[in-house]
């Protein structure tokens, strides 16, 4: 303390040291709110959750919380519903990443071309993203169950009469359609920003050299927007894995299908399965263990993805 006070005595020789100290203090003071909330809402709950995953914690009035070691993790991996949820979530994620990115990129190409009213299009494509997933799910449930079959009766196109939500395989497609509709606009904005940063002189030079539109797109545009791909792939990967709200409101985890000889809810993705382990299965500690596994899987996949896509970025 005394040392600290000495520092603030008027001593021209220590002026630099003083400035450094103040700078450091300012740095920490400004960082404090972010650090504090990060600790309070991320680090601490995560640590408690990690601890609970090794106990018999039930979140109810129980006499004591006992240490059970890896029991919850072993039980989780024995649960065929958990395995199914992991599998179906992976399938959904692959389909969704492709669908969202292809649609978003196409929209971005459109919205950066010399179209009339292109700002209106941009806003329009972005709009679904501001609607909450729960509401969106109910709206699309109505569209799939009522509107599309209704269209079939009016137009006489038999293929439309069957709702996508009636079978677990098509219900996954329905989930992909809705989340693409919801998320593509957001991802589009990232692509729009990247496409606008592609130097016009490069494209022009290529054109003069006789490159056609496809060649210019493949050899210049794509490599130049690679950094955007890193971001959008990461965002769509994480978002697809964590899909919960549309899942609950659109398909409610159903309809059922057969897996390993048993009937099972066919579109219950991982996040929803974990929530159900807790609120329907009343097994909070096991749900916690599943959530930790979920976290590890997600971290691994996103790290791999970031490393792989980073390698393909080009520096100008």
């Amino acid at each position: 303390m005394k040392k600290l006070l000495n520092l603030f005595k008027k001593d021209p020789a220590r002026g630099l040291e003083r400035d450094m100290f103040i700078q450091r203090m300012v740095f920490w003071i400004f960082l404090f709110p972010a650090l504090f909330s990060f600790f309070m809402v991320q680090i601490i709950p995560f640590s408690i959750g990690l601890y609970y995953s090794f106990t018999n914690w039930s979140a109810t009035a129980q006499p004591s919380i006992d240490w059970v070691g890896f029991k919850n993790y072993i039980d989780a991996f024995k649960d065929f519903k958990f395995l199914y949820a992991t599998m179906i979530t992976s399938i959904y994620t692959v389909l969704n990443i492709i669908s969202v990115n292809v649609v978003a990129f196409a929209l971005a190409m459109l919205a950066t071309s010399k179209l009339k009213y292109r700002n209106i299009y941009r806003a329009g494509f972005f709009l679904p993203n501001v609607i909450g997933g729960i509401i969106l799910g109910y709206i699309w449930q109505f569209i799939f169950n009522q509107f599309v079959p209704g269209l079939a009766t009016v137009t006489g196109i038999g293929a439309l009469s069957k709702t996508l939500l009636g079978d677990s395989k098509t219900a996954i497609i329905a989930l992909v359609i809705v989340s693409t509709w919801q998320y593509a606009g957001y991802v589009m904005m990232i692509y729009v920003a990247a496409l606008q940063n592609v130097p016009a002189e490069l494209l022009e030079a290529a054109q003069i050299d006789g490159a056609n539109a496809w060649q210019r797109f493949r050899a210049i545009t794509i490599p130049m927007v690679m950094p955007a791909f890193t971001i959008t792939m990461f965002l769509t990967l994480v978002n697809s894995f964590k899909q919960f709200d549309v899942n609950v409101s659109l398909t409610n985890g159903g309809p059922s299908t057969m897996f390993m000889g048993q009937a099972i809810k066919g579109t219950t993705l991982l996040a929803m399965h974990i929530a159900e382990t807790s609120s329907v299965g009343l097994n909070t500690a096991q749900a916690q263990a599943k959530a930790i596994v979920f976290f590890l899987v997600l971290v691994t996949f996103s790290l791999i993805q970031v490393v792989v896509t980073k390698r393909r970025e080009v520096e100008l």
Partner: peptide, 16 residues
Amino acid sequence: DFRDSTLGPIYDQLAQ
């Protein structure tokens, strides 16, 4: 859990 996660899907299979 048994009723919602095990029996429910079985009825659903017959319904489909």
